[in-house]
Amino acid sequence: MERQKSKMRYRKGAPLTSDTSFSRLMGDILIAFVALIGRPLSRLLYSIRIETKKPEKSRKLPSRAILISNHCMPLDPVFHGMAVFPRRTYFTLLEETCEAPVLGSLVRLLGGIPLPRSGIRLDDIEEAVSHGLANRGLVHFYPEGECFIGNQKIFPFKAGAFYFAIKSGVPVVPSSPFSDGAMEESPRASR
């Protein structure tokens, strides 16, 4: 068990996805737990109501797809995870976040794929995306490359996610989180 736990901690140069039976089991439990408490907690702490609106024609997400969204809240991966639940998704994030002792292991269990800044690991990212599509069918990218709190004017996208979509031949599903003033009521939300 200790060895499994130590494998969860990401270090530079390590494989980008962790796929052991232990990590899969823990990940499933954690995602179910977050889905259970996420909505009431975000309402209570941040006065945020998470509501998912899907177009009539496509009530169901494709079996394999790359999800794209603008990053306007620090907890966006949690909100988007809840929006697609019971489907599970991998999501990309800063490599440095995955290296953090506790948070890093937690986000890896939830499905975090660290994005190394160095271009020499591009093949590893492509491999991780293929792995994500094969296992959960969904990989989430934030192509702005950074979190811009409360932003509703989307910054230019980096092309990586779209490159992987073209290479893998899977559709892109955009999701736009937008604030409708609910955040304004909560001082915590602006932190």
């Binding site: 998470i50 609106k53 797809a65 031949g169 599903v173 955009p174 989180p177 409708d180």
Partner: peptide, 15 residues
């Protein structure tokens, strides 16, 4: 906050 999921978009073919 509302998360609006849009319809899937098929990518162009590889170059």
């Amino acid at each position: 906050m509302t998360v609006r999921v849009l319809a899937p978009i098929t990518p162009p073919p590889c170059g």
